[in-house]
C-alpha cells in the first residue's frame, strides 16, 4: 500500500514538474506549415492560440510565417519560413528573461519594454537587445546577420563585439570577429500586416484565350 502511495506521489510530483514550465509566449498568427516540440519529443502542428513554454522548439516550413507575442510585455517576434529556434524564458517577478536559440532562418523582433532582457543566441554569436526592432538571420553555415531598424543591438562572440544601430548590419561568423556596416538593403517583412497572399484573376477573351493575372498582396 505504501509503495502504491509512494508511486502515486512520485507520479503526481512528476506530472506537476512536467507542467511547471513557464508559459512565456502566445502564437497569435500562424500561416503555412509550422511545428513545435518539447524536449526532443515528436513534432506537433503549431497553430493560433498555442501557448509556448520555456524550452519549446519551433520550426517553420516553406512559405510559413508565425507571429508570437511574449506575455510579459507584449514584445513581438515573427518567424519566417524555413527557420528553426528554441525558446527559453525565465520569469523574474513581472518580467521574463528571454533567450532565443536561433539555429536557422530569419526572425524579426519588436521589443517593447526597455527593462526586460532578450538575447538571441546563434551558432556564431549572441545578440543582446533592449527595447528595439531588428532582424536576425542565420544561414546554413551558422553565420549571423543582424539588421538594425531602431535602437541598439549588441552582437558579440568569443572574438569580439559590435553595436548595431538603425540602418546598420552586423555580421558574425563562427570563426570571425563581428563587424558592422551600413545596411545595403532594408527588410520590411516584419512590419507587413501578414503573409503574402495571392489572388489569381483569370481573363478570357471572346476567342477563349486565357491569361491569369496574379496579384500578390499582404
Amino acid at each position: 500500500m505504501k509503495c502504491c502511495v509512494l508511486c502515486f506521489l512520485i507520479c503526481i510530483s512528476f506530472l506537476a514538474t512536467a507542467h511547471s514550465r513557464d508559459e512565456i509566449a502566445l502564437v497569435i498568427k500562424c500561416d503555412g506549415n509550422a511545428q513545435y516540440r518539447q524536449s526532443e519529443q515528436d513534432w506537433n502542428k503549431l497553430g493560433i492560440g498555442k501557448r509556448l513554454e520555456d524550452g519549446d522548439e519551433i520550426k517553420t516550413g516553406k512559405g510559413a510565417q508565425v507571429t508570437i507575442v511574449f506575455i510579459d510585455d507584449k514584445s513581438l517576434m515573427k518567424i519566417r519560413e524555413e527557420s528553426q529556434l528554441i525558446l527559453h524564458g525565465k520569469r523574474e517577478e513581472k518580467n521574463i528573461i528571454k533567450k532565443i536559440g536561433q539555429q536557422l532562418g530569419q526572425l524579426w523582433f519588436k521589443v517593447t519594454n526597455q527593462e526586460t532582457q532578450l538575447q538571441v543566441e546563434t551558432p556564431s554569436g549572441i545578440a543582446a537587445v533592449k527595447g528595439t526592432e531588428f532582424y536576425s538571420l542565420v544561414d546554413d553555415l551558422g553565420n549571423t546577420t543582424i539588421i538594425g531598424i531602431s535602437g541598439i543591438v549588441e552582437l558579440f562572440n568569443s572574438l569580439g563585439r559590435v553595436q548595431v544601430g538603425p540602418s546598420q548590419t552586423g555580421k558574425a561568423g563562427k570563426k570571425s570577429i563581428p563587424v558592422v556596416e551600413k545596411s545595403e538593403e532594408s527588410m520590411d517583412w516584419g512590419t507587413d500586416s501578414g503573409t503574402l497572399n495571392e489572388l489569381e484573376i483569370e481573363f478570357e477573351n471572346e476567342n477563349g484565350e486565357k491569361k491569369t493575372l496574379k496579384l500578390q498582396y499582404k
Partner: peptide, 19 residues
C-alpha cells in the same frame, strides 16, 4: 495580447489572449 484593437481578421484566425 491579441487581437490588435480594431483589427480585421477572419474568424478562424482569431484568438483572444490576455496576460
Amino acid at each position: 495580447l491579441s487581437p490588435e484593437p480594431f483589427e480585421e481578421t477572419q474568424s478562424d484566425q482569431l484568438v483572444f489572449g490576455v496576460s
